[in-house]
Design a protein around this nucleic acid. Structure first.
Length: 490
RNA sequence: GGCUCCAUCGUCUAAUGGUUAGGACAGCGGCUUUUCAAGCCGUUAACAGGGGUUCAAUUCCCCUUGGAGCUACCA
């Protein structure tokens, strides 16, 4: 049997990072079993529909390298298209099918029309809640005579269609992650499957489409676990073979509540904007709740796919460890080619300096210091000479006198004036020359390098002096040294 | 409240009916070094509690506690 899995986002806004994880698991599962990855857009909620959300979803998937084999996708101009023999893949375009299915259920006596108003339902639930009862539809409309129902439908009276679930017995189903799970039917509400606007709800639409699209494995968030009996009921009602289910746990805030916007970013787009690389996100999110081998953290997509196993997914929710995300990203940043890295830092670096020459020199030094885009400007500033005078008491190393510091700086100054321009081409050559001079004079490194570094940076903590000389260039470096000597002489 | 799911270091996780309970991030310490960063080395830290089953339980079962999800004409 060929594996067919679907990603089924609803176009209601950004992609939640938890949603991304399900999508990654879909993709890894398809990879692993050489199956088909399908993208179906579940747009049945017209009220929450956000224009452009489906397109944005596709674009983000594309940058993450998750490309469906079938279903909805975008063309080069970011317009929605669809491919594949099981269409339409835009759910509302399947409304006719859903409605026919609902009618079939009514005919089978497994669903019924309900004319209750929102107000009545609300009152009913409030009464049930107040008396400590579970809130469930009281089946008032089930008592309506067929004739009565018929005339009200003829009159065009707004109504919904509800599932008529059994009121006794129980269902047991197997979850690929959690094992067997049992629910009593009496706990299951008569779910609305067709809304008053004629559009199916998730429960009918997803099950019907999953069947029509021959989906073999439904991988979805844990929030769907308790509605699975309703879905099973629908499969059973039509005599369909249900797919296998895998309910993946939720992602959590540091306080262990469901990951929410309030406590940090949850949208994939915002992580991408912050400069987390696609490979970082893929690697990191895949490992939230699952690990192919315990002693490794870095995996390529292919390696993840090779080991992917639904039954090995953890059953408990996972708190997102943002420090680890940063660590992973700095790892992947170090893997980037020089060209790719300079593209990565370009916009942020431009905020600090426009000079392409200086940009180029700083670029190489940023590698070890950057974990994400927001780090770039702050760190790059260290490599740009400041106009402020360095503080004399900061320049002097330990018990050093101003005179001694001046002598050391003068020596560096003289050296910088006589070395060939080629020595300025890398921090390393500057280091060699300066250390050589220090040795010749019989000085210690600290007594020269500390004053030199503070002179250049003006700070107690900064990058090494050689890197600063290198990025500042001869003119600015000498100017800083002169400035420091002035301050020390005062 | 009801139903369902879940429970190993602070966090992500591994393993196991008998182990010094392993790895990673963070933390701490050291090396390197003129400081910071990076790198390298080392280190602190966990089986939620109580009952069983068993020669033996972190592992299997039950209960408690705690957490989460669902309880919509949202997905």
């Amino acid at each position: 049997m060929t594996v067919r899995v679907r990603m089924a986002p609803s176009p209601t806004g950004f992609i939640h990072i938890g949603n991304l994880r399900t999508v990654i698991y879909d993709a890894l599962f398809a990879d692993r079993h050489k199956g088909t990855l399908i993208l179906r857009i579940e747009d049945t909620d017209q009220k929450r529909f956000v224009e452009g959300a489906a397109e944005a979803f596709c674009r983000s998937l594309k940058t993450l390298g998750i490309i469906p084999d079938e279903g909805m996708w975008i063309d080069d101009s970011s317009k929605l298209i669809e491919r594949g023999p099981y269409g339409p893949y835009l759910q509302t375009k399947r409304t006719d099918i859903h409605q026919a299915r609902a009618k079939e259920l009514i005919e089978k006596g497994l669903a019924y029309r309900c004319f209750c108003s929102a107000e009545r339902l609300e009152e009913m639930r409030k009464a049930q809640h107040d008396s400590g009862q579970p809130t469930r539809y009281d089946r008032a409309c089930l008592k309506l005579s067929p004739e009565d129902v018929e005339t009200r439908v003829q009159k065009g009276e707004p109504h919904v269609i509800r599932l008529k679930v059994p009121d006794q017995g129980s269902v047991t189903f197997h979850d690929e992650i959690r094992g067997d799970i049992t629910f009593d039917w009496k706990e299951i509400d008569d779910q609305v499957i067709i809304k008053a606007d004629g559009i199916a709800t998730y429960h009918l639409a997803a099950t019907s489409d999953d069947h029509d699209m021959e989906i073999t494995h439904v991988i979805r968030g844990e929030e769907w676990l308790s509605s699975t009996p309703k879905h099973l009921f629908i499969y059973q009602a039509f005599g369909w073979e249900p797919p296998k289910f895998a309910h993946v746990p939720l992602l959590l805030n540091p306080d262990r509540t469901k990951l929410s916007k309030r406590q940090g970013d949850v949208s994939v787009e915002s992580y991408l904007e912050k400069g987390y690389l696609p490979e970082t996100l893929l690697n990191f999110v895949a490992l939230l709740g699952w690990n192919p081998t315990a002693d490794r953290e870095i995996f390529t997509r292919a390696e993840l796919a090779e080991h992917f196993d639904l039954s090995k997914i953890n059953r408990s929710g996972a708190v997102v460890n943002f420090e680890k995300l940063d660590w992973l990203n700095s790892h992947y940043l170090k893997q980037l080619s020089e060209e790719a890295f300079s593209v990565y830092i370009h916009d942020e670096l431009a905020k600090v300096t426009q000079d392409p020459d200086i940009q180029k020199r700083i670029a190489g030094l940023l590698r070890d210091r950057v974990a994400k885009k927001s780090d770039i400007a702050t760190i790059a500033t260290d490599f740009i000479p400041s106009n402020e005078d360095p503080q004399a008491d900061l320049i002097r190393w330990k018990e050093q006198t101003s005179e001694d510091a001046i002598t050391r700086l003068h020596a560096v100054r003289e050296l910088l004036l006589i070395i060939p321009a080629s020595d300025w081409s890398a921090p390393a050559t500057l280091e060699t020359k300066i250390k050589q001079m220090i040795a010749e004079r019989g000085w210690g490194n600290g007594e020269v390098l500390w004053p030199l570094r503070v002179t250049l940076s003006g700070k107690k903590q900064s990058p090494p002096p050689f890197e600063l000389l290198f990025t500042f260039g001869e003119k600015a470096s000498l100017a800083r040294i002169d400035q420091a000597i002035r301050v020390l002489s005062a």
